[in-house]
Write a protein that binds this DNA or RNA. Structure first.
Lengths: 208, 208, 208, 208
DNA sequence: CATGAATGAGTATTCATTCAT
DNA sequence: CATGAATGAATACTCATTCAT
């Protein structure tokens, strides 16, 4: 009973690991299911017991990897307590950026396919305990820091999209500059976005 | 000579038009070269006289479509003179956003493939006069408005990436909200980005 | 013992019923063993406890269904006594044609696979009491009606093949006409076949 | 121009010949397209330039072979003039039966798939001059012999179905007897079918 | 320049069958 | 007896690319 379930988990895990390596190495399109099962030491048919097709695998893998990323950032945050929502947010973002800078394959794989929808819900996480909803997580952080914010979702959306797309370009192509170089400006823009959204009224003129 | 050139242009144009329609309709991956030439009324071999392969066509098409987009925005700006760099920038962005809102196929096609590199250089423009470099264009606008800016490229990069990725989500999926809804906040963030980059940096004083 | 036998019968029966429905619905080739066991609520391995493979199942099913058909016709004949071999034969044929007209799936399934061999011997009947030999049955009817016939087997063969193949076309495709339309002609041809085989052959005089 | 067309004909012909041999040898189901093209000395893709799939090939092949059969019978008839419709009909049928007796593979292949619809129309004949409509052909023979017949189509249908299905059993399995043995009886039944359908009125009582 | 017939490597997917539990 | 996870051989079909005409 437990044995069979354990074996099943192992197989799925093997497919995850192998396919991720291959996607990183050769790209999604050039990776074949034959490649995956051959490297995972499984029969072809077995693949189809766990995933509908290559696209299903990809989607589940993105959820999985994104979840892992946030989980690691969250755990780091727990071990290095930081005060205030802004600092916490920056800590998490910087932590993730740092990981991605050292794992460009991961960045390449995730970014091409990540969307706000996946980010917000991360519902299809194959392992239940991973299916944390990041948006909920940040809202909680905000609440704990007693931040007032009219449109918390839009605020996070703006930040996440900005960070995601600029990272992609700076880290992978160093265009228009390196991540090192860009990071302080990114922080400053994020700082301003927080100001904008936590101001009493977005219409009112900004203080200078 | 001129005749032959005209004929060549016509064929290339036919491939552009047909392939764009098909990419919009069925997506890039599902569109075959057979499809394209059949719809364009050409022989298969003819395709290879004009493009190296499907990827070459796609890249040239993206440049072409992106150029067109900016060209239209630029022409609109010429006819509705607006004062000041910020207003000009917003005019151009809003104009493009409006087009994309009404042509989601175009948005889908461009966004998946647009990167800062293409945006900045637009090098492969098949029609020479299209190969305007947008970055240069904006730098010129800035100069005309006598804007001082330490890192103009980074500033535009931040804005373009933010606009690009948020548009994609808001227009195509209305996530987390509609473009209508999000637009004022986007404007405000852009406003702040301009402030950040055109004010004396907190770290380093502007040279005079 | 009896219990186990009952259970076995039940499973076999479930496979028969389910597979027949599926064969009718999707055809033999498109029906998979997975389909069958899933619908029958059994495990895949169980199938192989009862049948060698799909072909074995099909053959047994044809025998089974053909037997049922004749059994029903026979029972009807018992309840509506008819005099004379020709009338009895026509009664049985008409009865069966009527059933097939109302169950085209059955006709389709049986006809594609029925041959004179199966008809004559019905050897593989899975349930022993079904394994009535139709040819023997008709010979008995003939004997009871005191019909003299030199080649009774050929006579039945001619009739059965004619009825079988014309039914198939008339009922399933209404080609060249409907069964309704064709039936009187079919009767007349059968009548003549009976005449031919029960009259002194032109070539060889009947032995007395 | 003519060269290319000739080559195309040759390729189709090669596929026809090769596939027919393979179908005869291993059966339709067990013959793969890979087999066919390998034996025909063609590339896989080439197959799909000429036929939609294996089923398309089979149907066209049946038409082709059936047409050939009748064509040969017709040519033989032209060279051995026979008087009267019945004699002509029997000549053609006997001629075909004779061919089939000596080419059981052909019989096997055709019979499993021949239906009255194909017989009557033979429309899809790949080579135009083959697309003779047999039913029309026989109607013509009848007209020439000044035969009056109320339901000529039904008459031919009855004969063809009878001949087809009895041949199949007698030739391939010698069940219930050999074709040699059965032939005179078949002739007699056909003779009677002609009588039935050419009688002034099918409703009127048969003369005894 | 233009054609389109021919190519054939390449890939996803199915499914009957087995066997450890 | 029953199960159903695992297997992997088998196959249809696609499509970018070439090259003789």
């Amino acid at each position: 009973m437990g044995k069979i379930d354990t074996k099943k988990k192992l197989k799925q895990s093997a497919i995850f690991q192998t396919s991720f390596d291959l996607f990183r190495e050769k790209g999604f399109a050039k990776t074949t299911i034959s490649d995956i099962v051959k490297n995972a030491g499984l029969a072809k048919g077995t693949f189809y017991l766990y995933f509908k097709d290559k696209y299903d695998l990809r989607d589940k893998l993105i959820s999985h990897k994104t979840s892992q990323l946030f989980l690691r950032a969250h755990q780091a945050l727990m071990q290095n307590p930081v005060d205030g929502f802004e600092n916490q947010l920056l800590f998490v973002l910087d932590y993730i950026i740092d990981i991605l800078e050292h794992d460009k394959g991961l960045l390449q794989f995730i970014s091409k396919n990540l969307s706000w929808g996946i980010f917000k819900n991360a519902i299809n996480a194959p392992v239940p305990e991973e299916s944390m909803k990041f948006y909920e997580y940040f809202k909680e952080l905000m609440a704990k820091s007693q931040i007032q914010c009219l449109h918390p979702e839009q605020m996070l959306f703006s930040i996440v999209e900005l960070v995601g797309s600029t990272c992609y370009s700076c880290i992978l192509f160093e265009e228009p500059t390196t991540m090192q170089d860009y990071l302080p400006h990114l922080h400053e823009i994020i700082h301003h976005i927080l100001i904008i959204y936590t101001q009493p009224s977005p219409q009112e003129p900004l203080p200078d």
